[in-house]
Design a protein around this nucleic acid. Structure first.
Length: 567
RNA sequence: AGCGGGGUAGGGCAGCCUGGAGUGCCCGUCGGGCUCAUAACCCGAAAGCCGGUCGUUCAAAUCGACCCCCCGCUACCA
């Protein structure tokens, strides 16, 4: 059976989301690797294969760090969020990350959705009030969550540890357990103060979560095991309340009580869809309930929220579909080390794109990021190698040698292509390979293995180069066998068109370049993979061919790795 | 400490679930071919005790046990 046939009959609605970027800093290239790029590649793939897919995201505007950092900068949380959100939106655009809608978690619609979730869960008895003891700084007039209190580790006695865990012995504890506590901001000794908090009864969903995880085969098994382990150890109910001052939505009917940021953040996936649907004038329900296929792309750091908390909320509300898959990828490292500001190993998207085209980064991460929780490094040398060898020498050169050949020997006009039954030998084989490749790439990518899909595509391009070499059209032309040469060249041109279409999800800008150099005036993104078989290249007029990918010089790598880090 | 992931030619990886000659990919090295093309492309060769030990099996990179090393995670830090 050929998968490509299925492409015609797939008409399902698919919602693709990417983890909400926290509006508290600049995007760096590791963020791109685990979440935004794979989700973008996948949604482009879905659209190109006939699915009714949308790619939705939003800025995450809430939480303590935003409130605190805004105060540090002397601006309001709203201004702080707007500042970073704007930069992130620009970075996404420059990277070719094309959301159908990019909302904000602090928006009006998300507030309505959050209240709906809260009220529904409360009515159903899944949210209850409890008195809890927290440390309160009388000078700052605020409750001190985890990182806001410092003191001595109750286990090993290490000094100057944060409230959430000890960096010396690795033990985890609550802020109230910390000995000799002090406010991390002002050094004042905090007092213990009781307050009313709302708890989401996560523990009561253990059974349902377990069976959902176990029965859902689209979830990665490695991540599933991870989540199941947590259930086995016993889920704790989840404190979804934060006290003022807090940057978030105030809980209805309460004073100075806010939803914890992780309560309203995932809800923004759906509220954003609602906004998109309203703007487009289409139905909202189809993408979030019933048979909708929902994919949440995330980095491994937030898998608890997406494999446990969020599904439990959905199970409680009983209105929406549970995620179909939650593609979870590992983190991007810089030459084996965590990207972190303090260590100076932190490459922002902005800085990166000043030096290189977005497609270079898109290709590099796509080619090196497996569908797993495995971390992966960015190496400058490897990056250069991938760009120069894979993109320029293998892909770019195949395109270029084909187009230049048409220009020089066929008056820039692609010869008419023969029907498969008119072909024989190597030509017939190559034609079959061209017909086969879309299905092969499709199979890999449809299962979520984007890296494999790209590998299959690159293998095909190598096969193209081999065919070009073996069929020696330049020799045929010299011998006056123009018609034989035209058969080879027309097949290569068809291969180029096929590659442009299949590479589009990965390197959209470059693919468009190839497409237009080939002489197409149509829009590449409208071409469905299922229609590749009937794609006609004969008669196309080649525009002035020029290399699609420029190679990166050693000196540039040297300079950039020194300036941006990771040398 | 527990849990998760990893340890496969000089480097980077796939293969492992569903055992079948180390099967394979990219780069590097060495040799050859080609000259259409971005000094690109193609072919060939050298190079691995598949982290270690023990087991199961006719057969183990693949399954099981134990051990060693690396990385990560451990809920109110997105």
């Amino acid at each position: 059976m050929t998968h490509i046939l299925q492409v015609f009959v797939i008409s399902e609605k698919v919602l693709v989301t990417a983890a909400l970027p926290y509006a508290n800093g600049l995007l760096h290239i590791a963020h791109v690797r685990s979440t935004y790029l794979p989700a973008d590649v996948f949604s482009r793939f879905l659209k190109a294969t006939g699915r009714d897919a949308i790619y939705i995201c939003a800025s995450d505007d809430h939480g303590t760090p935003i409130e605190v950092n805004a105060a540090k900068r002397g601006v309001s949380p709203e201004e702080h969020v707007a500042f970073f959100r704007k930069k992130q939106v620009r970075d996404f655009k420059d990277l070719g990350i094309e959301f159908d809608f990019f909302s904000r978690s602090s928006g009006k619609v998300n507030r309505e959705f959050s209240d709906f979730f809260f009220n529904t869960l409360k009515e159903k008895g899944f949210i209850e009030e409890r008195e809890v003891l927290h440390r309160f700084c009388p000078k700052c007039k605020r409750f001190l969550p985890d990182r806001f209190v410092k003191g001595t580790c109750p286990f090993c006695g290490a000094f100057d540890q944060y409230g959430d865990g000890c960096e010396e012995c690795g033990k985890i504890y609550r802020p109230v357990d910390l000995l000799d506590p002090k406010c991390a901001q002002c050094g004042t000794v905090p007092v213990e103060k009781a307050g009313k908090h709302f708890f989401f009864k996560l523990s009561s969903f253990s059974g349902k979560l377990k069976s959902w995880l176990e029965s859902n085969n689209a979830l990665q098994s490695e991540v599933k095991n991870y989540a199941l382990k947590w259930i086995e150890e016993g889920l704790e109910d989840w404190d979804i309340t934060r006290d003022a001052p807090y940057c978030g939505f105030e809980i209805p009917g309460e004073k100075d009580k806010y939803y914890y940021v992780w309560f309203d953040a995932p809800i923004a996936y759906f509220s954003s869809v609602a906004q998109w649907a309203k703007e487009k004038g289409v139905e909202f329900d189809g993408f979030v309930s019933g048979d909708a296929k929902i994919y949440h792309f995330i980095g491994k750091d937030i898998l608890y929220h997406h494999y446990l908390f969020w599904p439990a909320m959905l199970l409680g509300v009983e209105k929406f579909s549970l995620p179909f898959a939650i593609p979870t990828r590992g983190h991007g490292l810089l030459a084996g080390k965590k990207m972190s500001k303090s260590r100076g190993s932190f490459i922002t998207v902005e800085d990166f794109l000043k030096e290189f085209p977005a497609d270079y980064l898109r290709y590099y991460w796509s080619a090196t990021t497996s569908y797993s929780m495995q971390d992966g490094s960015f190496f400058w040398g490897d990056f250069q190698r991938r760009v120069n060898d894979d993109l320029a020498n293998t892909l770019g050169n195949f395109v270029n040698r084909t187009l230049v050949f048409v220009k020089n020997n066929f008056d820039s006009k692609v010869p008419e292509i023969l029907k498969p039954r008119q072909l024989a030998g190597a030509e017939k084989e190559f034609d079959a390979a061209i017909s086969r490749v879309a299905g092969d790439v499709f199979s890999a990518m449809d299962s979520g293995d984007l890296k494999k899909g790209l590998e299959v595509l690159m293998d095909f391009v190598r096969e193209c180069n081999k065919y070009f070499n073996d069929s020696k059209p330049w020799q045929l032309v010299k011998e006056g066998k123009d018609s034989s040469a035209s058969v080879s060249v027309s097949l290569c041109a068809k291969a180029v068109a096929t590659v442009a279409v299949l590479a589009f999800p990965f390197v959209p800008v470059s693919s468009r370049d190839i497409w237009s150099q080939l002489g197409f005036s149509s829009e590449l993104e409208k071409v469905k993979w299922g229609s590749l078989k009937s794609l006609s290249v004969g008669g196309l007029v080649i525009k002035n061919p020029k290399p699609v990918f420029k190679k990166i010089e050693d000196s540039v790598i040297k300079k950039v790795s020194r300036d941006l880090g990771g040398a």
